[in-house]
């Protein structure tokens, strides 16, 4: 099957510092990929360049067969302009570590804003879609609350519903439980589990929750210094890591728990 996301020789630099180095990565439709690695290894950057929050310097990213970072002009690929990029990036949704909800809008309005003003849904349709999703994440009673009246876990669930309301094909989760108090992590992971069971979604998640990655992901990628140092199915990956660095990282993480 053709990959839905494909990184081909992608390099991302900040000044002289390369955060992604000639990265190749294919993700199949409906695949759940967990991305782990030490901080500064480029794992969050991978999601950020895919969401077009950052520009890449070399290589091409394809989404659903279409180039995302480039567009075709007179038979050649040139860097994409904003308008073209918007036409492709609609297939991607993202959830952030710090939720980034819109503080001046209620939970419901957060989920209706983009469907109405980007997709052009009517108010009724947008509201129906938003309330359905908020119900799914277990927040039927919080629709009229503004973000600062919600707990971190509740805010993150609103953020997930908000991203889903755009009907993306690919969802990016960037350390979505890292800013949460420990007792709130479970409710967010449960929502992600439910999503995996009930929806046809490709998911890329940067996470520090090794247990969740092992149980939920189809594949685990270990990032080290801007490259994928090792990847494989979770059972293999966690029980028999081949790479020296993977072993060091895993034992350090497991020791901490």
């Amino acid at each position: 099957m053709d990959p839905i996301v494909s990184f081909q020789g992608v390099t991302k630099r900040y000044g002289y510092l390369s955060v992604l180095k000639e990265l190749d990565l294919d993700v199949a439709p409906n695949e759940k990929v967990a991305i782990i690695g030490p901080s500064g290894s480029g794992k969050s950057t991978l999601l950020r360049v895919l969401m077009t929050l950052e520009q890449i310097q070399e290589g091409i990213i394809y989404v659903d067969g279409q180039p995302l970072t480039h567009m075709e002009r007179n038979g050649a690929l040139v860097p994409a302009d904003e308008r073209y990029q918007r036409s492709v990036r609609g297939k991607i949704g993202m959830v952030f570590q710090n939720f980034n909800l819109f503080p001046h809008m209620t939970a419901l309005q957060n989920c209706m804003e983009a469907p109405m003003n980007v997709l052009g849904l009517s108010r009724q349709d947008a509201q129906a879609r938003a309330s359905e999703l908020l119900e799914m994440v277990g927040l039927a009673d919080k629709m009229q609350s503004r973000p600062n009246r919600l707990s971190g876990g509740q805010q993150q669930r609103v953020a997930i519903a908000r991203a889903l309301a755009m009907r993306p094909k690919v969802m990016l989760f960037d350390e979505v439980t890292s800013a949460l108090d420990p007792e709130l992590v479970g409710e967010v992971l449960n929502v992600i589990r439910k999503l995996g069971d009930e929806h046809n979604l490709t998911m890329l998640m940067v996470t520090h929750q090794m247990g969740f990655a092992r149980e939920f992901a189809d594949r685990v990628c270990f990032f080290y210094e801007g490259r994928i140092a090792e990847q494989g199915p979770p059972n293999e990956f966690f029980t028999d890591p081949k790479n020296e660095r993977t072993r060091a990282f895993l034992s350090a993480v497991l020791e901490a728990h």
């Binding site: 969401m51 077009t52 929050l53 918007r86 990036r89 609609g90 991607i92 949704g93 993202m94 952030f96 710090n98 980034n100 909800l101 819109f102 804003e113 983009a114 003003n117 980007v118 953020a159 908000r162 991203a163 755009m166």
Partner: peptide, 14 residues
């Protein structure tokens, strides 16, 4: 906050 711009981009807003 910068995160507000990022959230808007992630929702494909112009």
């Amino acid at each position: 906050a910068k995160g507000q711009y990022e959230a808007a981009t992630a929702l494909n807003m112009s």
